[in-house]
């Protein structure tokens, strides 16, 4: 088993609204761990509490209660020591000095962590090469494209020489090509530089593509903490798309409606489409029993593949429905 580098236990944070003085519980006792070298996706709808969680891990927000350990160091008791092991890109290009050049930014931030210019020269050169910023090193940041600014912000975080890098919306506002480049960079950062990465993003393609595991937060609570692969499987195996050679009878449609909560029927004289989600995999037999009633020919069966965006929406919506049921 890989060693845990971040350990979050029973973390709570509430804020008081300025005008109404109403107390909002942003984070309600969440616990999770991140293993060394892992790429973790921290997801949730807007206002779920993920940014507050990230900022508490970064030592920017003090939790009301709970423990955050970074490389075994409690970040509330020894904040500065814990910060040695962590760096972050929280506001993307806004985290840079726009009046300084690419190289000056890298050197300045390294200096702010106590590194001399001389000590980081080689590393700066390597990063400029790796992040394809070599030709732009003397360019002022405000003259760079958004994609380049984003790459530079990640390079700055890399130069911090910390084991953990936190990224909030690393591909926000980037075009498809640059988003892909940033994704590849992050993968490289994790694999070749052995860094632990925590990504918070609404871009589910990025999460599905590079994260090994996701923690989904909703209403300040963790609703899922599992591998991306497992979540995809979980939702994938139960959804089927059937191509039928006939129309379904009224009786069959009534039975389907009764039996399966989520199904979609698109009638067509030659090729009808039936999409069914099964609560249990054994329910497939009952589906075939219904089709057998009118000897409906089944021309093809496809297991519907779900992408991570659908999985995320289902988890979050399911959780919201549960909340509604609880409150009613």
């Amino acid at each position: 088993m890989m060693e845990q580098i971040i350990h979050v236990q029973n973390l709570k944070k509430s804020y008081k609204k300025r005008k109404t003085k109403e107390v909002i519980q942003a984070v309600k006792g969440i616990s999770f761990s991140v293993r060394r070298g892992e790429i973790l996706g921290l997801l949730g709808p807007n206002g779920a509490g993920k940014s507050t969680t990230i900022k508490m891990i970064c030592g920017l927000v003090k939790p009301d209660s709970g423990i955050i350990q970074i490389n075994g160091i409690n970040n509330q008791e020894k904040r500065l020591k814990a910060l040695r092991h962590i760096s972050a890109v929280l506001e993307g290009n806004r985290n840079l000095y726009w009046r300084l050049t690419v190289r000056e930014n890298l050197e300045y931030f390294a200096g702010n962590r106590g590194f001399s210019r001389k000590a980081v020269t080689e590393q700066v050169d390597e990063l400029l090469d790796e992040f394809q910023l070599k030709g732009k090193e003397k360019e002022l940041v405000n003259r760079l494209s958004r994609g380049m600014q984003q790459k530079l912000a990640i390079a700055v975080a890399m130069l911090a020489d910390s084991e953990v890098i936190l990224l909030d919306e690393p591909t926000l506002g980037l075009d498809v090509e640059t988003s892909y480049e940033v994704r590849e960079l992050l993968r490289k950062v994790a694999n070749e530089h052995q860094r632990t990465i925590i990504i918070s993003s609404h871009d589910m393609d990025v999460i599905q593509d590079i994260c090994e595991r996701t923690v989904i937060i909703n209403n300040g609570e963790i609703v899922t903490n599992d591998k991306v692969e497992n979540l995809l499987k979980l939702f994938d195996v139960r959804a089927y798309s059937l191509t039928l050679g006939n129309l379904l009878s009224d009786n069959q449609q009534t039975l389907l409606k009764k039996k399966f909560a989520i199904y979609q029927y698109t009638p067509d004289t030659y090729q009808s489409k039936l999409e069914v989600e099964l609560a249990k995999s054994e329910e497939i037999y009952e589906l075939f029993d219904i089709l057998k009633l009118a000897r409906t020919p089944v021309e093809a069966i496809d297991r519907k593949t779900v992408n991570f965006e659908q999985v995320f929406l289902k988890i979050v919506k399911g959780e919201q429905q549960n909340e509604k049921l609880k409150s009613s």
Binding site: L60, L80, L83, L90, E91, R94, N95, Y97, V156
Partner: peptide, 14 residues
């Protein structure tokens, strides 16, 4: 306003 202050706040130097 720019967003660089939070980067400074994350420096282990304080």
């Amino acid at each position: 306003t720019q967003g660089t202050f939070e980067q400074l706040s994350m420096s282990p130097m304080g």
